[in-house]
Simulated assay, not measured.
Amino acid sequence: METKKEFDQVEYLKNQLKYLGFGEGEKLYKDLEKGINSKNQQFEIKTTSDKVLSGNKADFTLKFNKTDSGGVFLNSYHARLMNEKNEEISHNFPVNRENTFTAKEAINLLEGRSVKIEFHNPKSDQQETAFVQFNFDEPKTEKGNYLFQNFYKNYGVETDKIVEKSNLIFDKPEYKENTIKSLEKGSVVKVKFNMNDQVIEGKAILDPQNRNLKLYDSDMNRINTNKPLEGINHEDKHEKANVREQSIKR
């Protein structure tokens, strides 16, 4: 009979960091092992990411906690973005087993884009899908976090229809599916589209609030003014809510 493999705490945490997009570099792993082997009940390690728009910089402080039984857990991380204007934008992201924003999704939120999540709707007390983005117009919470602006399912954000309306061109069918997934994660996506009877290579960002794509040239200059999809009820158009980060689930 096969014996159950002994749980490897270090390997588990390394895989978690890799899965969440914090990398798998030698320094990161050495800092992790140093923290695990230290006598401190809590420890932090720092890392950076280059998956940002040109002129921006991002760094993360990963916060770990040890249990009395010897377990080590990544509880949360602090994400900080320095933009090209040297302005600091930061947020604390909780980490749990089921639902956690990845490092790239955190950057996308800090850069002002939206991410599709599974969301607990306080009105219906049900799990729903929604697009969320930071509300930079509201003051931060006591924990130093932004409130989220949410666009629920009945707001009418259907990415596949938005992509069709934008006349994007895909060399292979699977490229369309990959593009939709990337747009819903809040990424800036390389695309091809028709404009003035020409095929243009550029970039696209999903804009759930206006239910359209923002199209740019390769230098990120805006080149379209798409109108929102029609047919949305007036009441649904304003179905938005600001809730604290604890209500967010992935």
Rank of each mutant, 00 (worst) to 15 (best):
M1C: 07
E11N: 14
N15C: 02
N15T: 07
Y19F: 12
L20F: 04
G21E: 15
F22D: 08
E26D: 15
E26R: 08
L28V: 09
Y29H: 15
K30W: 04
L32R: 05
L32D: 15
I36P: 04
N37H: 09
S38V: 06
Q41A: 10
Q42L: 07
E44W: 03
E44F: 06
V52L: 11
V52M: 09
V52P: 13
D59A: 00
N65V: 04
N65D: 11
T67H: 12
G71I: 02
G71L: 08
G71E: 15
V72N: 03
V72L: 05
F73L: 14
L74W: 11
N75T: 12
N75S: 12
H78E: 11
A79N: 11
L81M: 08
L81D: 01
M82S: 11
M82L: 14
N83W: 12
K85I: 00
K85S: 14
E87D: 11
E87V: 05
P94H: 06
V95M: 05
N99F: 09
F101D: 07
A103C: 10
I107G: 05
L110R: 08
E111M: 10
G112H: 01
H120K: 15
N121T: 02
P122R: 02
K123H: 14
D125M: 14
T129H: 09
Q133H: 06
D137P: 06
E138H: 13
K143L: 12
G144H: 03
Q149D: 06
F151S: 03
Y152I: 13
Y152R: 07
V157Q: 02
E164D: 15
S166C: 05
N167D: 14
N167M: 07
L168C: 08
I169K: 01
I169T: 04
K172F: 12
N178W: 07
K181L: 10
K185L: 08
V191A: 03
F193W: 00
D197I: 01
Q198G: 05
E201H: 04
I205G: 01
Y216S: 10
S218Q: 12
N221T: 13
I223W: 02
N224C: 02
K227H: 04
L229M: 14
E230S: 15
E235P: 02
K237H: 07
H238M: 01
A241N: 06
R244N: 14
S247Y: 11
